[in-house]
Structures are given as C-alpha cells and as structure tokens.
C-alpha cells in the first residue's frame, strides 16, 4: 500500500512539473536529424571560432622564410612540414589564417544579426502593439528598405562610410536585417492583438505595457528568433561579399573569409585551394545556420507539434 501511495505521488509530481512549450520544442529538436546536423556544424564553428587563437599554430600576419623561399610569380607553396595547408599568396600560414578568420566571421555575423534583431524588435513591437499611423509610418519605411535587394542595400550603406572598416560592415549588414525582423514581428504582434488570450487579459484590466510585453511579445517572438538563425547565414554571406568587394576592413593582415576569397581571385590558376577553402567554409557555416533555423521553425510551429 505504501509503495502504491509513493508511486502515485511520484507520478503526480511528474505530471505536475511545469514544462513550457519551448522545452517541448527542444525535446522534438533533439530527435530531428536535420536539427542535429545543423547544430553540430554551428557548434563546431563556434568552438573553432572561440578557440581559434589557441588552435592556430601561427599568427594571421606572420610571414615565414620557408614559405617565402618558394614563393614566386606562378607558384605558391602547397602543404609542407609545419604548414598543413601550405602558404598563402604572401607567405603566411594558410591554416592559421583560415582558423583565425572564423572568429571574425562569427563576430561580424552575430553582431550584425543581434543589432538588426534588437532594432527590428523595437520597431515591430511599437508598430504591432499600437497600430494606427505609427504602424503605417514604420511599415512604409520598412517597405522601402525591403524593396531594395539586400546585398545592394548592404553595399549602398557600406559605401556611404568615409573609410570602410569592420564596424561599417556590421552596421550595413545589421540594417539589412532590420526591416525583415520588424515586418515579421509586427505581423505576429497584430495576430496576437486579436487573439483570445490577449482579449481575455485585457478584460482583466491588466496594464497595457504588461499586455504588450508579457502577453503579446513572448508569444509573437518565436518566428523572429527562427528568422534570426536564418539571417545569421545571410549575414555571414553578405559580410563576406562586402569584404570581397573591398568594402570591409582594408587591413591586408586581417584574416577574414570573404576578404581571403577576394584576394585569392588573382591566384585561381596558381593555387585554387586559396579560394576553395574560404568559399567552402562560408557555405558550410551558412548552411549549418540555415538547417538549424529551418528545424527550429518546424519545432516551434504549433501545427507541427505531436
């Protein structure tokens, strides 16, 4: 009898333990091979980026006599003792540069996305929560930004800067994200405004700020977070493109995949690996974020549950 009571109690505890929709989404994610693939790629990328200074055998700007010795027009030394990926066009260790570049890429991608997300969320919340002319004005502005192809927009913004730097790349890429986040959030905020539970909580006389911030925003933000993962992929591509076009930091010693790809152009026939590795790195990382984002979107979609 005591075991029965104890078991019953354990079962009640188990059933009563609060589990949010988000934690259930996570449970689903853990069983999704696409999500796992994306997470592994992204995880590896983040670990490599974080540990890059430790992993890289050499500095990004360091040149080596061993490499420079064989460096002449028409030949760039390939893999050799101590330099697994060989030299780049200036006699620097290519492997170290690849590794160190991951850090720059992650930094630019994350910063640009986070800044774009923050600004977009503020705009989307204001537009969706208040509606009326505020909404109309803000949405017209985002429409204008959305009408421009995103790379063109990033290029135009970056080109406005007097002297291109990493900061201007981040800002340019962030601005590309703002209207996407704002529109998306505004749409789901509007849907929330009409939703039963928001009407119900309004009927309870809950303060307007609490209705917006506690009852509407958390329910509306899901798709925006998913979008952020996807935007991270395009942000990395856009940032690489800006560097490639010479709109990024001009410091030749700096390692950055887009910049490396741009500089490798001149040596495509001499040593295609110089272009191949940065290109593949950019694609794999962007793909990783896309896979993760797409499966997040599916896991969080209430219609997909069960």
């Amino acid at each position: 009898m005591t075991t029965f009571t104890a078991r019953r109690k354990a079962r009640i505890d188990e059933l009563a333990g609060g589990r949010s929709l988000t934690s259930e989404a996570f449970r689903r994610l853990r069983r999704d091979p696409v999500a796992i693939t994306g997470a592994v790629v992204v995880g590896l990328f983040v670990v490599v980026a974080a540990l890059a200074p430790l992993l890289a055998p050499h500095g990004a700007a360091e040149t080596f006599v061993e490499l420079k010795r064989d460096l002449r027009p028409g030949t760039i030394p390939g893999p050799m003792e101590g330099f697994p990926l060989g030299s780049d066009q200036l006699g620097r260790d290519f492997l170290s540069r690849m590794l160190l570049a991951s850090q720059q890429t992650l930094l630019v991608g994350v910063l640009a996305t986070v800044i774009g997300l923050a600004v977009g969320v503020v705009i989307g919340t204001i537009a969706g929560a208040f509606g009326g002319w505020v909404d109309t004005l803000l949405m017209r502005l985002t429409d204008v930004l959305l009408a421009v192809p995103h790379l063109l927009l990033a290029i135009s913004v970056a080109a406005l800067a007097a002297n291109p730097s990493q900061t201007t790349v981040i800002i340019a890429v962030a601005i590309v994200g703002v209207p996407i986040f704002a529109r998306l959030l505004r749409g789901s905020m509007l849907a929330q405004r009409e939703s039963d539970h928001v009407v119900a909580v309004t009927a309870l006389g809950v303060r307007r700020s609490a209705v917006v911030l506690r009852h509407m925003l958390p329910n509306a933000i899901g798709p925006v977070i998913v979008q952020a993962t996807l935007t991270l992929a395009t942000a990395i591509l856009d940032a690489a493109a800006l560097s490639f076009l010479g709109l990024g930091d001009a410091d030749p010693g700096r390692a950055e995949w887009g910049l490396m790809l741009a500089q490798a152009q001149a040596y495509l026939d001499v040593r295609p690996a110089l272009a191949f590795f940065p290109a593949v790195a950019i694609i794999v990382v962007a793909l990783g974020f896309t896979l993760l984002g797409e499966s997040l979107r599916e896991a969080l979609d209430p219609k997909g549950s069960r």
Binding site: S20, L21, T22, S195, D196, H197, V199, A200, V201, T202, A203, L204, G205, V206, R214, H215, P218, N219
Partner: peptide, 20 residues
C-alpha cells in the same frame, strides 16, 4: 476592467497565455 467587470470566455485553452 477586472475589478468592476470581468469576463470568462468560451474557449478555455485559447483564453490562457500559452507561454506563462
């Protein structure tokens, strides 16, 4: 609202905030 007049809605699931 809430203090003087309050209301109970038809659909008990959709009338509760799912994330709280």
């Amino acid at each position: 609202r809430g203090r003087d007049v309050s209301m109970i809605f038809q659909d008990p699931l959709s009338s509760l905030n799912p994330v709280i």
